[in-house]
């Protein structure tokens, strides 16, 4: 129901810049994930959207209305948002029911309607049976779901979620993801979803915005982000790719401080000189061809095995089907089916 536009947003705490010139558009009814390492400014960005922090520079518009900018500062209670806090922020002196009913009570709805909607919201998060409980009688994951229900109950036009599923088990997480998707279908809510779990972001989002050190690295649909990362950082953070420094000479990548070389496939741009090689673990092949390296370690992953090698000072991970009779120390040959080269930073 609402488009969010951030334009050149800058935020510093004291002298310490946290968000450095962020421009981003979240489309109406879209689920956009903010993905990035701890401390990169995700929560800060979300807090600026909510109106809990004011950007030092830049503007924020929600649904075509300017909510933050020079001389404009709409307080959080008049932005009509829902938010799940990273620390849950469930009021410990109110029961589960009272927590969830709060946003509705502020809107002066009729008793019967409030209790009806609270019940629905609690059903979404599978907490119908816990309505009477006090927060200190709940587990961490249950608290998180109370926070989620409270954010959902007023059907806000924009929902801000700060790692809302981080404390839940895999099955419950799956269920709630489905609930969120259904909710979005039904109400057309715009969702901004903060996470540092890349699998969650890939599975859930329409688009993903990857942040690093207060700037956007890339904003794209999950498939494009995965298959066409715009930087070595994105490739490493989203696909868990190997990132190796070195030089390109005659179509071959020579790794720094190591004998290892990788023949580059034709489609990869062949700018000669210092560069960074990005290899996904599942794009590497163990066999009779390629550069020989001694196996350093082997990790059983279930349906596949991760083989680890040392290349200079970096670690090279290869994910391949299990092989019989391979021992650590044994020299294996590695070939890259697909690779990506970025200019050295």
């Amino acid at each position: 129901m609402a488009t969010i536009v951030l334009d050149g947003v800058v935020k510093a705490y004291g002298k310490n810049p946290v968000v450095r010139g962020l421009s981003l558009e979240v489309h109406e009814g879209e689920l956009l994930s903010l993905l990035g390492p701890s401390g990169c400014g995700k929560t800060t960005t979300l807090r600026m959207l909510a109106g809990l922090e004011h950007p030092d520079q830049g503007t924020i518009d929600i649904g075509g209305t300017r909510v933050a900018g020079p001389g404009v500062r709409v307080p959080p209670e008049r932005r009509g948002l829902g938010m799940v806090f990273q620390s849950y922020a469930v009021w410990p002196n109110r029961s589960v029911e009272a927590n969830v009913a709060y946003p509705l009570a502020l809107r002066r709805l009729a008793r019967s309607e409030i209790s009806e909607r609270v019940r629905t919201a609690l059903r979404w998060v599978r907490l119908e049976a816990f309505a009477e409980r006090m927060p200190h009688e709940l587990s961490g994951g249950q608290l998180q779901r109370v926070a989620l229900a409270r954010a959902l109950v007023s059907n806000p036009r924009v929902l801000l979620l700060d790692e809302p599923l981080s404390n839940l088990d895999a099955a419950l997480r799956e269920e709630l993801r489905a609930e969120l998707a259904a909710l979005r279908e039904r109400l057309g809510t715009t969702l901004v979803f903060v996470t540092h779990d890349q699998a969650e972001a890939l599975a859930l989002s329409d688009r993903i915005a990857v942040m690093n050190g207060g700037v956007l690295e890339q904003v794209d649909a999950p498939e494009r982000l995965y298959h066409a990362p715009a930087s070595a950082f994105v490739a490493r953070f989203v696909g868990g790719a190997n990132v190796l420094p070195g030089v390109v000479r005659d179509g071959v990548f020579h790794c720094a401080q190591s004998e290892a070389t990788f023949a580059l496939p034709n489609e990869v741009a062949r700018s000669e000189g210092p560069a960074t090689l990005v290899l996904r673990p599942e794009d590497l092949e163990l066999g009779t061809e390629g550069t020989p390296l001694p196996l350093a370690a082997r990790l059983f992953l279930g349906n596949s095995v991760e083989y680890r090698f040392a290349v200079g000072t970096s670690l090279l991970r290869v994910v391949a089907p299990p092989m019989e009779g391979v021992r650590t120390g044994q020299v294996l040959r590695i070939r890259a089916r697909r690779a990506r080269v970025f200019a050295a930073p």
Partner: peptide, 16 residues
């Protein structure tokens, strides 16, 4: 007391 408790109330629509 977590300050976020108060912020949560603000986001829910409460005045300061």
């Amino acid at each position: 007391i977590d300050p976020a408790l108060e912020e949560a109330a603000r986001v829910c629509g409460a005045s300061p």
